[in-house]
């Protein structure tokens, strides 16, 4: 056919290579950006302020309940053991007086301090911490709403993860595992017989004063840090543990 006349000028593999590179780079670089969106935590939480500042222990908030289940995020009630705001209604009324209506009490967060009723409750010293604490009290404690934290290690409802079953696993044990185990290698560096939280959770979170954004997969809603099944299975296999479906699923 007529159009079939060969065009010699680009006879080489250039367009091919170009196509390959453009798409490959886009696929590796742009795709993850599109796939994941950053979501800010409800407010900034400083582990440092609590651990170093107040000398709290991890177990004060993240402990095993009597039934063996693990209390992940502390509830308002637990936070209120220190952050005691008394009668929430009184605080709401005091805030409403400033903002004019109980419906928009969160507007007080636009100002850096005040009213007195709120300032009086603040326990933090650092300006950043103060703002975070103000947000916590006004948005959640005062209104009786639990904090909707994003869980970096979020697992879907069909997964039953037992913290209890993994509680006695030490970093040293993991570090000693044979085989190409990413986490194990990372763990090896600071292997000690302490807690193994770093194995899955944000590394050394107790030393952080910020709460990095939660990276959410737009399609699945998973966190970028959500451990996939093959990772669970690999470690189970290395530890000679069962990989039967009902060990983890519900």
């Amino acid at each position: 056919m007529e159009e079939m006349r060969a065009s010699k000028q680009y006879g080489g593999a250039l367009p091919f290579l170009l196509g390959f590179l453009v798409v490959a780079v886009a696929g590796w670089v742009l795709f993850p950006d599109i796939l994941f969106v950053d979501k800010e935590q409800p407010f900034r939480f400083s582990h440092v302020a609590h651990v170093e500042g107040q000398g709290m222990l991890c177990e004060d908030c993240h402990y095993f309940r009597e039934d063996g289940s693990f209390a992940g995020f502390p509830t308002n009630e637990e936070c209120a053991m220190c952050h005691d705001i008394g009668d929430p209604q009184e605080l709401v009324d005091a805030l409403a007086e400033v903002t004019g209506s109980p419906d928009n009490i969160e507007d007080v967060l636009k100002q850096e301090e005040g009213p007195e009723a709120l300032d009086y409750l603040i326990l933090s010293a650092e300006p950043e911490d103060i703002q975070a604490e103000r947000a916590f009290i006004v948005k959640y404690l005062a209104q009786g709403k639990e904090v909707p934290w994003y869980n970096y290690q979020f697992q879907p409802d069909n997964v039953f993860f037992s913290h209890k079953a993994h509680a006695d696993l030490t970093m040293a044990q993991v570090a000693a595992l044979e085989g190409g185990h990413g986490e194990a290698e990372a763990a090896e560096a600071d292997a000690e017989d302490g807690t193994n939280c770093n194995l899955c959770h944000l590394e050394d979170i107790h030393l952080r004063s910020d709460t990095p954004p939660f990276q959410e997969n737009v399609m699945t809603g998973y966190s970028k840090m959500t451990m996939k099944m093959w990772q669970c299975e690999r470690c189970h296999a290395q530890m000679h543990q069962s990989n039967a479906c009902y060990v983890c699923h519900k």
Partner: peptide
């Protein structure tokens, strides 16, 4: 039916705790 399997997992956790 899975014999309320999650109750089994919870029972194991409770056992470990106890």
């Amino acid at each position: 039916c899975n014999f309320c399997h999650t109750r089994y997992m919870k029972a194991k956790d409770r056992a470990r705790e106890e």
